[in-house]
Design a binder for these strands. Structure first.
Length: 328
DNA sequence: GTCGTGACGGTTGAC
DNA sequence: GGGTCAACCGTCACG
């Protein structure tokens, strides 16, 4: 039987920590792509997660997470670590909001938002939330944004008059926070900076909660058009493609959704010295290959060189995602 | 014995 | 350049 262990002493020496199974890991850093691929490959071939855990000396929790992630996203690659999401309220957007408000001082924030989309100033991925627009009107534009709809509508700071669409709106994206808690659950994503209405914790009775804007799986082929938002898109490659790409360059993302020329990982001199000329790199790999490829990769050290280099679908699990990865 | 889950301590990179 | 913040990571323990 092949030795799937990747904590070969010759490779792991002095790097990382050792887990309860004897495997080496670096706290806070993802497992190398070949190991991740191997986990998926073994699972696909029918190996139980507990056996994968033992043979690769990776904790079963980690195996579980990687497999769950793969089943959910189709990608074996780790998510982007660190960094922050790009700002949506760019000077250009603020300028357009100001223009709209100058032309029509009575314009609602939600109307401005729709117009930003209509005029292609923003797309659905980077359009500011209604509450963001309200904040811009309040803080950056000033008097122009003062409500002119009447007296007695309450404090404009928290009033819905400027930020909410008509109550009769049928848009499903508008949800009243006064609805029963069973009607809406606010997920981690819902509370992300992008989607957190500033009014959520205020006294406002109605706020807008954005639904996730993930593309359907079958639209993934268009993902490269949205490189600024690739965290929210699905992978466009099959497991085998990821595998073959990773085998060619184990620390380069084997995923076509990598949106720029940078690799999520950089090779180290040690890696090149030890492994670059290994015969395995010249083999024609397949997902059925049972060679002990894990042991020829040096899991550590490695460094991540660019944030957001790897597309990371990040979403609530309740949005109709495929239960099985794309396989063909 | 197996596996899903959340806390934990850690890393990372944008701001 | 350093601090903060919010992403992510794998391990571990629990149920």
């Amino acid at each position: 039987m092949a030795d799937y262990s990747f904590n070969d002493n010759s490779l792991s020496q002095s790097y990382g920590e050792v887990n309860q199974l004897g495997g080496v890991f670096v706290n806070g850093r993802p497992l190398p792509t070949p190991i991740r691929l191997q986990i998926v490959q073994m699972a696909n071939s029918g190996t139980r997660p507990c056996d994968i855990s033992r043979r690769l000396k990776v904790s079963h929790g980690c195996v579980s997470k990687i497999l769950a992630r793969y089943h959910e996203t189709g990608s074996v690659l780790p998510g982007a670590i660190g960094g922050s999401k790009p700002r949506v309220t760019t000077p250009r957007v603020v300028g357009r909001i100001r223009d709209y408000k100058v032309k029509d001082p009575g314009m609602f924030a939600w109307e401005i938002r729709e117009k930003l989309l209509l005029d292609n100033v923003c797309d659905k991925f980077n359009v500011p939330s209604v509450s963001s627009i309200s904040r811009i009107l309040r803080n950056k534009i000033g008097p122009l944004s003062q409500p002119c709809h009447g007296i007695g509508e309450g404090n404009s700071e928290h009033s819905d008059s400027n930020s909410s669409p008509p109550v009769s709106s049928t848009s499903s994206s508008f949800v009243s926070t006064t609805m029963p808690s069973s009607t809406i659950s606010i997920t981690k994503h819902d509370l992300s900076p992008v989607n957190t209405p500033s009014t959520l914790s205020s006294s406002a009775s109605i706020c807008k909660i954005e639904p996730p804007t993930w593309l359907p799986y079958d639209q993934s082929s268009t993902s490269y058009h949205h490189h600024n938002h690739h965290r929210y898109l699905y992978p466009t490659v099959t497991f085998q493609q990821q595998f073959e790409s990773a085998m060619k360059s184990p620390y380069t993302g084997g995923n076509s959704i990598v949106s720029n020329s940078e690799s999520p990982f950089s090779h180290t001199p040690y890696y090149y010295q030890q492994n670059y000329h290994h015969p395995y790199h010249q083999q024609n790999t397949s997902i059925n290959n049972t060679t002990n490829y894990a042991s020829i990769f040096n899991p550590f050290p490695y460094t991540q060189t660019s944030n957001f280099a790897v597309a990371t679908p990040y979403y609530s699990s309740s949005y109709g995602l495929p239960l099985t990865p794309q396989t063909s």
